[in-house]
Design a protein around this nucleic acid. Structure first.
Length: 806
RNA sequence: GCGAGCGUGGCGGAACUGGCAGACGCGCAGGACUUAGGAUCCUGUCCCGCAAGGGGUGCGGGUUCGACUCCCGCCGUUCGCACCA
């Protein structure tokens, strides 16, 4: 990639280091030389280095974002230096409620705001020196992108993985609009403070539950998914597999109530039942005397917003329906109640209450004076349980399930906590869901050839008092001929969830310039699954799970060759400022621009990467930033000396060993994203070279290579000062020779009774008797041995000797 | 409440599978060079002690020749999830 002739260097070789000049020069040159643009169709060693794309807020990238992006970029550059063809794309997750709410607040259409925000993000991302392939930039709001988001919806629909059903949403009765959960503050609308209620709307769902088992099983497959345990655990808990039984409790007149329980072993202790207030059997079974109370309770629960229903105060409430059902084990008739602590969405929406062995049931039983029967004793054995008396609880669980199945009273069932994914949003700023409602044909998918369904640019994009979705008010858009029969029909006015936009963007990146298919088959085969994905652990569940689900469906439909999209995932830590996470609401957001302007991008990058372990985050204080700058200044000066060094003089042994050890350590640390200790290792080498007045060309060049992932512009400039024409990123990462990493003479620590007393110098790999002899000759050791007999000698070769005396 | 993690100098943080606690950096102190220093260079910097030595990784126990590291019990803190039967 070298050019035949180079412009004259922007600085004389020994001028002081001026980051502004160096950074501007190399950013321009990378663009001219297409340094960061791999051959997507021919790369031999493809490495897809992906960073979670940002949501382009009006504030721009803050220091926390910069930390994350830089960490990902360091890894990409390291892999590039190791000889991989690294593809490092960037894009913008620009649809969604954040942008829309901000747009409403400032009264400007998001379609107008977002491009400005993106331009600002682009400027910041270029300034920090990311190795981005800008040819493949994407924005989820671009029709050329969301055309394919809509296409994915249609594929799921065709495959029977998308369906419509009624579901509750938060509803503000004053604003007459749907609210997202995060817009509900203490049960009130965040805008007008009105009490929020629930409303039931028809919405589109993706059948993620059908994949729950596979989403769970793949987590154990390390060859497909090299992910951190914490993320895997979070996903496992979210999917929430549980083994239990469905049990029928017969009602007085033929019908029965089906419950789900993970503890069928406690069946004999079920002394009452509780249904979710919205359970369909409730109207049927409610006695005439209870009618009024039951209806009042159901109305009251329905009026609560979803958030406080789920999170709210623990105080149990409920009413008796007047009905009784038969406990199939004891044969006793037990009362049936309704209470909002039972959720319609989980299990069967009904439970058998076993107050003796469930805290919530106990609370409820105490409040309403219901009987409590203990059926498991302290040895975890069943008591008071008929033929199962004395059986250990674990064994009883399967025995009772078997009994239920044999007698037709129930069956063993596996439940998942995860619900189907509701993708409908009653909003403006998203991709319209590609469905047309026809009075004659019903819901008709928009034909693929008619995609994208463009989001119209409308002035009145806010929700208003009419309760009609903003898109429905736009009549020339709303009414369309039915694709099947041609009569006047109506478009779906909901848009899809932002999480759908981000569930497939990694598939689009390599193929952004293609408009006849979402992703090129060959390119996908070459580059995917993503080699390394880096992002925040706040997305451990939703984004990562939805992406896995979409990949799985597309795989099963034959569109892609893999079913897990991210071969390796690592979560970056959070940058903390003044003891808490950086966020706008806390008012502790640090804008990086001024730091970069003052210190330069390379210094800032190095500073961020040395704050703490990348996967744990760090504490941002501007005090420390001078350190990395001093480091670069020193290296700059050393490079000046090294350019005049022939690189042929003999290297002192201590320096030689340190050189090779540093190469090993930095390589290993970068591989594990331990950037802070990698930087410390290079600093140690620098300190030694300065102390030894060594500026051997070979060593200093290696040092520049090791700094390159962190300070790319700086490294390029140094590389050029050494006379190299090509980009340093087309050079190979330095190798070390294991033989040189071991020193000839080793300092062995000598302990007496476990306390360090002295050190002795011995030849490498000296045997025990040699070390012991050297140790007992040592004056200090001699004093502590005090002529006593050595009872035990413990030698850790090349490290430590512990002498144990009485 | 449940789950996961974390507690080490004035500060950010090092310490391999149990083997010299405090690497590296910031800050601070002293010195050099300077008209000057918020530049640069040198020296020092866990605590007590002149020293020899002693103490020390949130607290209390344990295992071990040896514990920041492993085990048990507390305390504190952060992040998820949250009435999931």
């Amino acid at each position: 990639m070298s050019l035949p002739s180079l412009p004259p260097p922007s600085q004389p070789a020994d001028a002081s280091y001026q980051p502004d000049l160096v950074e501007a020069k190399w950013q321009a040159r990378w663009a001219e030389r297409h340094t960061n643009e791999p051959d997507l169709d021919g790369a031999k060693r493809p490495f897809y280095n992906l960073m979670m794309f940002p949501y382009p807020s009006a504030e721009g990238l803050h220091v926390g974002n910069m930390f994350a992006f830089t960490g990902s970029d360091v890894f990409g550059r390291f892999k590039r230096l190791q000889g991989y063809d690294v593809f490092e794309p960037i894009g913008f997750d620009a649809f969604g409620i954040h942008s829309e709410n901000y747009a409403i607040k400032v009264g400007i259409n998001p379609a107008e705001l977002i491009p400005k925000n993106i331009a600002n993000f682009r400027r910041q991302l270029r300034r920090i020196g990311g190795m981005f392939d800008w040819r493949h930039e994407l924005s989820t709001t671009d029709p050329a992108y969301y055309k394919w988001t809509q296409w994915i919806f249609l594929q799921l629909l065709k495959a029977g993985k998308a369906y419509k059903k009624a579901a509750a949403v938060n509803w503000c009765p004053k604003d007459k609009t749907v609210l997202a959960n995060e817009q509900v503050i203490n049960g009130r609308c965040e805008r007008c403070d009105t009490l929020v209620e629930q409303r039931t709307l028809e919405q589109w769902f993706f059948r993620i539950t059908a994949y729950a088992d596979r989403l769970l099983r793949n987590l154990d497959d390390r060859s497909k998914m090299d992910w951190p345990d914490s993320t895997v655990t979070a996903q496992r808990n979210w999917l929430g597999r549980s083994e239990g039984a469905e049990i029928e409790f017969p009602l007085e007149h033929g019908k029965s109530i089906r419950v789900y329980s993970t503890r069928p072993d406690t069946l004999f202790g079920a002394t009452f039942m509780v249904l979710a207030p919205e359970h369909p059997l409730v109207p049927e079974i409610t006695g005439s005397a209870q009618q009024k109370a039951v209806n009042a309770y159901r109305t009251q629960v329905a009026a609560k917003d979803i958030v406080s229903r789920k999170v709210g105060e623990r105080e149990k409430t409920g009413v008796f329906t007047g009905a009784f059902a038969k406990n199939p084990a004891t044969g006793r008739m037990i009362p049936v109640w309704i209470a909002d602590y039972v959720l319609m969405e989980y299990g069967t929406g009904a439970i058998m209450a076993v107050p003796a062995h469930d805290e919530r049931d106990l609370e409820f039983a105490r409040k309403f004076a219901l009987p409590v029967v203990t059926v498991i004793d302290e040895q975890e054995r069943l008591v008071d349980s008929g033929e199962f008396y004395g059986m250990p609880a674990a064994a009883a669980k399967s025995a009772i399930i078997r009994w239920l199945e044999e007698t037709g009273r129930g069956k063993g069932v596996i439940q998942y906590r995860v619900h189907d994914w509701c993708i409908s949003r009653q909003r403006y700023w998203g991709p319209p869901i590609p469905i047309i409602y026809c009075d004659r044909c019903g819901p008709v998918p928009v034909p693929e050839k008619d995609l994208p369904v463009l989001l119209p640019l409308i002035e009145d994009f806010r929700p208003d008092d009419t309760g009609i979705s903003p898109l429905a008010r736009h009549e020339e858009w709303y009414y369309v001929p039915c694709p099947t029969c041609g009569i006047r029909a109506r478009r779906e006015t909901d848009v899809s969830d932002t999480f759908l936009d981000s569930a497939w963007y990694y598939l689009r990146y390599p193929s952004t310039e293609l408009d006849d298919r979402p992703f090129d088959r060959e390119r996908t085969r070459r580059w995917l699954p993503v080699t390394t994905y880096i992002g925040g652990n706040e997305h451990a569940v939703l984004h990562l799970l939805y992406s896995r689900f979409v990949s799985m469906v597309l795989h099963d439909l034959g569109h892609i060759h893999f079913d897990e999209p991210f071969a390796k995932f690592r979560a970056h830590g959070l940058i903390v400022k003044d003891g808490s996470k950086m966020s706008k609401s806390r008012g502790n957001v640090v804008v990086p621009d001024e730091y970069i302007a003052k210190w330069g991008a390379d210094t800032f990058r190095m500073y961020l990467m040395s704050l703490g372990p990348f996967q744990e985050g760090g504490d941002f204080r501007d005090a420390g930033i001078s350190g990395p700058r001093r480091f670069l200044d020193k290296v700059w000066a050393l490079v000046g000396d090294a350019t005049r060094d022939a690189g042929s003089s003999e290297i002192p042994h201590a320096v030689l060993a340190k050189w090779h050890k540093t190469k090993r350590k930095v390589t290993e640390d970068l591989e594990e994203l331990k950037y802070n200790t990698a930087i410390a290792a290079v600093t140690e080498l620098l300190n030694l070279l300065r102390e030894q007045r060594c500026h051997d060309r070979r060593i200093v060049q290696d040092m520049v290579l090791m700094i390159a992932p962190f300070a790319p512009h700086f490294a390029e400039e140094c590389w050029e000062r050494f006379g190299h024409m090509a980009s340093i990123f087309d050079t190979r990462w330095p190798e070390w020779d294991e033989r040189f990493t071991v020193e000839e003479t080793i300092e062995v620590v000598v302990q007496v009774n476990g306390k360090t007393r002295s050190k002795v110098s011995v030849h490498r790999d000296a045997d025990e008797s040699t070390v012991v002899e050297a140790a007992i000759r040592d004056q200090v050791v001699k004093r502590f041995l005090d002529g006593r007999e050595i009872r035990k000698k413990i030698l850790v070769p090349n490290r430590l000797l512990n002498l144990v005396v009485d």
